[in-house]
């Protein structure tokens, strides 16, 4: 099976600081890959590198076997940024329609796609409200709906569940699972450890380095701990010890 995402030796420096150091990332269709790591580890930069929105200092990123950056491939990627990028003066519906048109959703598909996406994030009743009147969680949900609007083959979600209540989070994960079963590839960054447990594959990034990757069970076994949270802490401790030993 061909890989949906194939990033090889991604290297990115901001000035003298290396943010990503030769990171490899593979994602197959029908798979959820979770990127975990502390704040500032380089998760968002890696996501942007895959989207082709970051100039790389080394390595290549391929999506659907096309080297990024590639404009037409963008239409196949549903992207949810870490910060809500919404037009405050417009209603949720207007925001959705605008991005749907930019994504090139065919005219006859606009209505059903919008209905599906808003239904999923539970915003149908608030669709005609201006975004400025939305709560933080509602904005997050609208951003997710926008990411889903063109029924993309690859979903890239940067901390999608921040500010979303537990019940809705369960719904969203159930839906992600359903999308995965349809054969879509999902790349997700998260700080929530029980979400990490639900991913098929995990990748732990710290200080721009791929510390460990594998299924959640593999990681737990490798570090001899019971939870992903402990993997996270132990891997970090080991990395620090390594550096101080050097």
């Amino acid at each position: 099976m061909t890989l949906t995402v194939n990033a090889e030796k991604i290297t990115k420096r901001f000035g003298s600081k290396t943010v990503l150091d030769q990171v490899d990332l593979q994602l197959s269709p029908g798979e959820i890959l979770g990127l975990i790591g502390p704040s500032g580890a380089g998760k968002t930069t890696l996501v942007k590198a895959i989207l082709g929105m970051e100039k790389l200092d080394g390595g290549t990123a391929q999506v659907f076997e096309q080297t990024m950056p590639n404009r037409p491939v963008m239409a196949e990627i549903g992207y949810m940024a870490q910060s809500d990028a919404l037009y405050q003066d417009l209603t949720a519906k207007e925001n959705l329609l605008f991005f749907a048109r930019l994504m090139g959703v065919p005219h006859d598909q606009l209505a059903p796609n919008m209905a599906y996406a808003t239904e999923l994030v539970n915003l149908t009743a608030d669709l005609n409200k201006k975004v400025v009147a939305y709560s933080g969680g509602m904005k997050r949900r609208l951003s997710l709906a926008i990411a889903l609007i063109q029924d993309p083959g690859l979903l890239i979600l940067d901390e999608p569940t921040v500010g979303i209540d537990p019940e809705l989070r369960q719904q969203i994960w159930a839906e992600l699972k359903r999308l995965k079963d349809q054969g879509k590839a999902i790349l997700i960054t998260t700080h929530v450890m029980d979400e990490a447990e639900r991913c098929d594959q995990l990748m732990l990034i710290r200080e721009g380095i791929d510390l460990a990757h594998g299924t959640p069970q593999e990681l737990k076994d490798r570090y001899g701990v019971a939870t992903i949270e402990q993997v996270f802490l132990k891997a970090g401790r080991l990395q620090d010890e390594n550096q101080s030993n050097r």
Binding site: L51, M53, V73, A81, L86
Partner: peptide, 14 residues
């Protein structure tokens, strides 16, 4: 500054 420009450029728009 609101990030919508970055978001715009994550679509196939020229």
């Amino acid at each position: 500054t609101s990030g919508t420009l970055t978001r715009l450029l994550a679509t196939p728009v020229r």
